[in-house]
Design a protein around this nucleic acid. Structure first.
Lengths: 200, 200, 200, 200
DNA sequence: AATGAATGAGGATTCATTCAT
DNA sequence: GATGAATGAATCCTCATTCAT
């Protein structure tokens, strides 16, 4: 029962399915047919709407990064002062919407995709640039000239926690399923020390 | 001219070629034929020696991790006292033998491989366990009960620096090519603060 | 705004588009979607009007041959006597309405279509039969019993000139774009000799 | 039972099969699988040896043109004097090795291929150039300045006879199966008149 | 020890065609 | 009348893997 205006619905379904499929296989070795099946349509339709596999991947990536960015933006909107804002960024980074098994696995694979696709690399670069920019902005009043270095450290730490999470091992001290609290604690531990040290 | 004792030579050549090929493509989407060609032999011979593609990958992984472990061990042997030993671990992690573009790219892909292969996951788990164990051992006398948390933090930070390096962006403040000094500085910055805080 | 009597307009547009598309690609490897797009409608509508791809092709063929036949008929109507009529046929064959790059390319492909489609073969056969018939009729009084042979020769020559034109090479001595005058000269050269020889 | 030196054998088999397949379908719409099956191997092997479908087609074309050229060369070697040489060319053009149903059909399709492939176009251009060159060379002493025009005429006539043959209609007065004698007669009829006219 | 030969399985992509609106 | 939606069926091509030599 074909209707009009299916395109956005189909595209969204495919993006979700792509993340889920990458997440569940842990790999980019996912066929368009698998993705399409999970999204409830034929692979031909997937091609029709996206033009090709890489574009499907890129759309999934864009979506993931957009959701992440929205989370950070929302958290920042409610935070008062640099300290709160920094913690908001960290918490948003591990909010349950992003820090789920499948999303984390997809994230890892986006880094791989970025090795081969310029578009993908650009997307990731923007994400990193924004994160670093956000961190630096709020670190400046707190740690002065060290802001830049500290931002790098925190950003790397966040990515590192994500990366370790992909193994499904206890990233900090717990479970196996992503542990938001532990992840936040790991990063905040570092951040706290930096803030204590201050601008020296 | 078939020779005796060719096996170890062939295997080593294939392992090197595998890392190089993964490194240069940035992906596990590498054909056995490519690897074999780079190693100067037919793909049939590669199969003969390793039995299959996955085993080639695993051997490459094992090799990479072994080289890394040897580097750490060597560095530890010359270090005196916990502080020196900790720094030795960090330095070894970014020693030029490991921290090269292609090796870093391979490393990333090993994390992906670990998502799909139990053997690969085990190898990475051992690496992480060993790193954490080393760190905890030397942190204990310096930060007491916090050793475990700090070890997690440092380990995650190291992996994060690696991960960011894959994008070829400035991982800390510079360049584009792996910058050993910057990487060490990033991690040591965190470690120093932790040590300053001590056991409180 | 659906209108009445759209059918003939749509059909004509599709036929034109088909010839143009075959002409510009040089091949029958043309998708219905391409044709429909060029004709300014959806491919579904193209199917609606023609029932299928082959019928679209056949319609384009029929149209091309019809235009050609009309050209010949018109030219014959104004010619006096066998010689003039023969020349009229030759001239009409290379009149600019037919002897255009895209039409020539389409023509070539109709020969290919005729290999696979009986309907197409019939259409071409009729064209050839008519041409031969026209030629023979006017040759008879001029070359007597040789009329049949000469007609074959002239007909083959006309087709040969068309065929060579598809390569875009100098069909006779010049250019690259269809050269009506040169084509006519080539054929008339042969015809003139035959007429000079007469009925012997 | 794999042997060595299979490559030339396989390639030859594929070339033959390609011509046969194009000939029997009358189209370039032939799948690699069909060709490979006819040649007694898997389609994968066909790709292995040729790299792709277009190259298979080009090889078939090259082969066809090479056989034709060899035929002409052989005929010329035994001919004495311009007249004999000219007739030799014409006869060779319709020798049974070339003038077979399937080869003629393939020939037609090579013209189509030439519309889309530069390599194919080049091959056909070389054939035409050689034919024209051969004709002109021997026509010069017989028809003087008209050599060039006459060569064009004869060449076009030869191609036209081929083209008409693709329809399987009586190209001259007979049969349905290629009629070598009739074809030769058609072309020689024209040539004879030209020679009689001489250099005027 | 080493490889050319060979293939089955699979995957991205295209396209004619159908259908509900 | 007209079209977006949707798909099954192909087709080209790749590749890991096997085997006979």
């Amino acid at each position: 029962m074909p209707k009009l205006g299916m395109e956005p619905i189909r595209r969204a379904a495919l993006v979700e399915a792509t993340i889920a499929e990458i997440g569940s296989s842990g790999t980019l070795d996912v066929t368009v047919a698998q993705i399409a099946r999970r999204a409830g349509m034929s692979s031909a339709l997937a091609h029709h709407y996206f033009g090709g596999k890489e574009q499907i991947f890129l759309a999934a990536m864009r979506h993931t990064l957009t959701v992440y960015a929205a989370g950070v933006r929302g958290a920042l909107a409610m935070a008062k002062g640099p300290e709160q804002r920094l913690e908001a960024i960290v918490r948003a980074s591990f909010a349950s919407s992003n820090f789920r098994r499948e999303v984390v696995a997809a994230w890892l694979n986006f880094y791989v995709l970025a090795q081969a696709s310029d578009d993908a690399r650009r997307l990731l670069a923007v994400y990193q640039w924004r994160l670093r920019s956000n961190l630096t902005y709020d670190l400046r009043p707190l740690v002065g000239a060290r802001a830049s270095d500290v931002a790098d450290r925190i950003a790397a730490l966040i990515d590192g926690v994500y990366l370790r999470q992909t193994l499904g091992l206890k990233n900090v001290q717990g479970h196996g399923q992503p542990d938001e609290a532990a992840a936040v604690a790991t990063v905040m531990g570092c951040l706290t020390l930096e803030l204590q040290r201050g601008t020296t």
